[in-house]
Amino acid sequence: MKNPGFVLSIIVLALAFSSALAYDPDPLQDFCVAIDEPKNAVFVNGKFCKNPKLVNTNDFFLSGLNIPGNTSNPIGSTVTPVFVDQLPGLNTMGISMVRIDYGINGLNPPHTHPRATEILHLLEGILYVGFVNSNPENRLFAKVLKPGEVFVFPKGMIHFQLNIGKTNAVAIAALSSQNPGIITIANALFNSKPPIYPNVLAKAFQLDGLVVEGLQKKFWYDNLDLSPKRQ
């Protein structure tokens, strides 16, 4: 190799470029308030941008996170999102957040965010939280959190939270994307539409095919609350 330094530079630039593509792009203007109506708008980063002259303070404002989520459901938790669809002013900003309410023994089931790292701050209660890193190690990183403590879930890692206290729990989490995406593992695999061929799941989980078919017929609850709270 006549010029290893040049090759190394190309590799570094390629890695930097691929890393940059993995995150929400930096904004190239002051703001780009999302709008569904394309009239008097421009299309940026998956959303139409509201005409800047029509933007107002309420485009950057959301109320309702003080309202507890309903935890009387099969998994005992509710996630209240503040993504770009709930707060249009987040468009192109590369951030979002959620409120998570947990009933006693409530679980935010194993899931991933394909487009975001998450940092969780526990406000009330006691949570057992953790994530698993990638193959072949599949190492569990887990911790019991008390109020005021923080835990980070790296981008794309399968993670969870379980209320192990004797009272309800509440957490606030921030994410490094305006639209982080949520893939709940059990729901995605056993409640896909159309269903995954049972033999695939039977071999993957080393289960009897009838067990898989039974799981595919179950009701799989989604704890993400998308009801409008914007005022």
Results as ranks from 00 to 15, higher is better:
residue 52 P to K: 11
residue 199 N to S: 14
residue 198 P to D: 07
residue 125 G to T: 05
residue 99 R to I: 05
residue 20 A to R: 08
residue 23 Y to M: 05
residue 144 V to K: 15
residue 125 G to R: 05
residue 129 V to A: 11
residue 22 A to G: 14
residue 191 N to Q: 10
residue 59 D to V: 00
residue 159 H to V: 03
residue 107 L to C: 03
residue 212 V to W: 14
residue 125 G to P: 09
residue 28 L to H: 14
residue 138 N to P: 05
residue 174 A to S: 11
residue 34 A to I: 02
residue 33 V to Y: 04
residue 57 T to Q: 02
residue 91 N to P: 01
residue 142 A to W: 05
residue 178 Q to L: 06
residue 28 L to R: 15
residue 160 F to T: 00
residue 223 N to V: 06
residue 225 D to R: 09
residue 64 G to Y: 06
residue 47 K to W: 09
residue 108 N to E: 05
residue 117 T to W: 02
residue 224 L to K: 06
residue 65 L to R: 04
residue 186 A to K: 00
residue 132 V to P: 02
residue 68 P to L: 07
residue 103 G to W: 11
residue 216 Q to N: 10
residue 160 F to L: 15
residue 104 I to N: 10
residue 140 L to R: 15
residue 137 E to Q: 07
residue 161 Q to S: 10
residue 92 T to M: 15
residue 189 L to F: 10
residue 4 P to Y: 15
residue 65 L to M: 15
residue 27 P to K: 04
residue 178 Q to C: 04
residue 222 D to Q: 10
residue 183 I to F: 10
residue 38 P to T: 14
residue 43 F to C: 05
residue 219 F to T: 13
residue 90 L to V: 02
residue 165 G to I: 07
residue 132 V to C: 09
residue 212 V to P: 06
residue 66 N to V: 10
residue 25 P to Y: 15
residue 21 L to D: 06
residue 107 L to Q: 00
residue 165 G to H: 13
residue 120 L to T: 00
residue 45 N to I: 01
residue 34 A to D: 05
residue 102 Y to T: 01
residue 54 L to T: 12
residue 107 L to E: 00
residue 133 N to Q: 06
residue 92 T to Q: 08
residue 171 A to Q: 09
residue 94 G to M: 06
residue 110 P to C: 09
residue 35 I to W: 04
residue 53 K to Y: 07
residue 42 V to K: 15
residue 16 A to D: 08
residue 34 A to Q: 08
residue 70 N to H: 14
residue 45 N to C: 11
residue 181 G to D: 01
residue 150 V to G: 03
residue 110 P to A: 11
residue 125 G to V: 08
residue 140 L to Q: 07
residue 145 L to M: 14
residue 85 D to Y: 14
